[in-house]
Design a protein around this nucleic acid. Sequence first.
DNA 1: AGGGGGCTGAGTGTTTCCACCTATATAAAA
DNA 2: TTTTATATAGGTGGAAACACTCAGCCCCCT
Lengths: 216, 216
Amino acid sequence: MDKIKIIIADDHPMMRSGVKSVLLADPQIEIIAEAKDGDEAFNLILKHQPDVALLDVEMPKITGLEVVRRIQSENVKTKVIFLTMYKAEDMFNEAMDSGAYGYVLKENAVEDVLESVKSVHQGKYYISPLISDYLVKRINTQNDLKSKTPSINDLTQTERKVLKLISLDKTTQQIADELFISYKTVENHRNNISKKLNLSGTHSLVKFAIKNREKL
Amino acid sequence: MDKIKIIIADDHPMMRSGVKSVLLADPQIEIIAEAKDGDEAFNLILKHQPDVALLDVEMPKITGLEVVRRIQSENVKTKVIFLTMYKAEDMFNEAMDSGAYGYVLKENAVEDVLESVKSVHQGKYYISPLISDYLVKRINTQNDLKSKTPSINDLTQTERKVLKLISLDKTTQQIADELFISYKTVENHRNNISKKLNLSGTHSLVKFAIKNREKL
DNA sequence: AGGGGGCTGAGTGTTTCCACCTATATAAAA
DNA sequence: TTTTATATAGGTGGAAACACTCAGCCCCCT
């Protein structure tokens, strides 16, 4: 049986060392490359077409999520496992929607990583037990099909631009000046954004904007 | 020459593996124990009295900073190096004030960790180059002694309570109701907090509150 | 030709927040 | 004991944000 070819990507060299030392202990696995950011990871995956890619979600240049989306549109058969420290539910959901096969928490035991690689290589999914309840929740929410928690994707181009500027703590007037549009127009955009995202309250828009700044 | 005795502490097993695999490569170093949280780390340091302790700043139960403070009051000669992913300036300052000998970023090369251990063992300090400008800044601000960038510690008990509630996106009226005080009083607190923290602008207080929510 | 969606601008009114200021009571500190 | 810090509460004025409505313009699609 052939070895499982893997590439790993994480912006922390120390973390890469850890993953390497764990995976190398298993003779069934071969690490053929490693990357320090999403850009590098994507290129290496294209070049080597490994069986499995172990990606950190947060990386410089390109996020791990974006890497998955790209390799899918490139029609590469590499299966992706996310290795992250965040239990955040929406991040998990995004990861799963993007088409990942695994979601492993860094706080989990080292054995989990080995397990996940093997499982995913066999075509199975592998989710850290600590967040398996998110999975259940997803299944339930899929049943009442039309709910669809509102997300950034529902926003138009201009609305995103405005939201982006809000996240930078600009006032409505400043945004208006910056985009060469009227104060009132910006207010309307704010209003529409709030409605689309189902937000209310003086600061909820700002909070949301800050929280999702990178995605804009 | 004796080996350098080390204990390492990090809540991510994978990261511990990484550190271990790097340090074990050097015959001069001996890892005598490892911990998964601050509590464990503190006890192991007391018990083994190692030369150097490599601590993560963020750990369950007890933070790394707290561990340093404790071992100092216990009069243990172990020197502490912080290993963290955060470049946050105030965290760095806190770390240095607590009495640490090293501050190494996880994003740095693995060689840095080795270097830091050896340097610190020789009684020297070791700070990641990426944040050395913080050091310079500290020196400068020590000269004009009274400046002291304002921080949460300047706030009174009540002000913290208010700020805590602000971080939860409560409005002034809601905070007033919750604390059984007048609307105007809360407004005064907001005002005082803003002044103490040197903030201005409609949302800066909220932003600050959210950013520092955990510390309240 | 019509409808829908998106961007623009405006009107009107309310709520919330910000920045000062004054003032009293109390407890701690100098 | 006087001073200082803290918590409390009120007043005024203005800035910013929120909510809702209406309307013109453009573009795309059926």
